[in-house]
Nucleic acid binder design. Structure first.
Length: 253
DNA sequence: CATCCGTGGGG
DNA sequence: TCCCCAAGGAT
């Protein structure tokens, strides 16, 4: 849920989710469409699909217990370099670098003296964080959490609160007089209004809130551009988020 | 490596 | 209003 989604937006849905499905086996036992429906408006609904698939794999291949080794975690659907290490470190206490967008920004500023991190580079980012970790497992875990939290709360993207920063006295960016970012420009995020993403969102929202199959006529009312509507629908079907039921459509069973 | 994949809040 | 960006991952 936290992947590309602000923490405050996750807290309540997560609590409700865990109350409904306390264990991987509980989630694995229900149709994947239930997970997609319960995902609600969290965004990136493929994550719901993958979380369910993840629960199935954990139940069938790992005895119902979330694995603790990074290489095992990386085999799970929807679990990448960040999530695998976050689980291994924060849930199990192992010693690994954990690099998310906050950590990348703090390192770029405090260590490299840059206003912002460039495009992500997994190997380079993990190595940079690894170099900052204390040897002791428990200390390394706290360091991971602390740097991530520093980036989330103090060393924020827009207006960093340098006056409140506990490491301001050793920050390279501050020492250099806050130079502007030099480097490859971030790829601009595509406009949402009018995008396929928006159309997919509209279609899925309709399916989530309907107890019965949705007809093509109902989908037509959602978006005037037939070609784009069909493209979005086809991509949802290809993703496994939507299933054709006769001439109608439903969430997957 | 670039692009796609939702949604919502804040500057 | 518009733009940015948010505990990323898969292709």
């Amino acid at each position: 849920m936290l992947q590309q989604t602000p923490v405050v937006r996750v807290i309540e849905p997560l609590a409700a989710w865990l109350e409904r499905w306390p264990t991987p086996a509980d989630l694995a036992a229900v149709p994947v469409g239930e997970a997609v429906r319960a995902w609600g408006r969290l965004g990136y609904p493929r994550r719901a699909l993958r979380l369910h698939a993840c629960a199935v794999v954990i139940t069938e291949e790992f005895g119902g217990v979330v694995p603790e080794r990074v290489d095992d975690l990386l085999t799970l659907p929807g679990v990448g370099e960040y999530t695998a290490r976050a689980v291994a470190v924060f849930a199990y206490g192992h010693r690994h670098p954990v690099v998310d967008t906050n950590v990348r920004r703090v390192i770029a500023r405090a260590i490299d003296g840059q206003a912002d991190a460039g495009p992500a580079s997994t190997n380079r980012d993990l190595a940079a964080m690894a170099a900052l970790l204390p040897q002791d497992d428990a200390d390394a875990r706290v360091t991971n959490a602390a740097i991530m939290e520093l980036g989330a709360i103090v060393c924020t993207a827009r207006s960093p609160k340098c006056a409140e920063c506990p490491i301001a006295d050793v920050c390279a960016w501050r020492a250099d007089g806050y130079p502007e970012y030099r480097g490859p420009a971030r790829a601009a995020q595509a406009r949402y209004e009018g995008s396929d993403r928006q159309v997919r969102g509209l279609i899925l929202a309709e399916l989530r809130t309907s107890d019965i199959p949705v007809t093509r006529d109902e989908l037509e009312a959602l978006w005037p551009d037939a070609a784009q509507r069909e493209r979005a629908l086809a991509s949802l079907v290809a993703d496994g988020l939507v299933v054709a039921s006769g001439s109608d459509f439903t969430l997957p069973q």
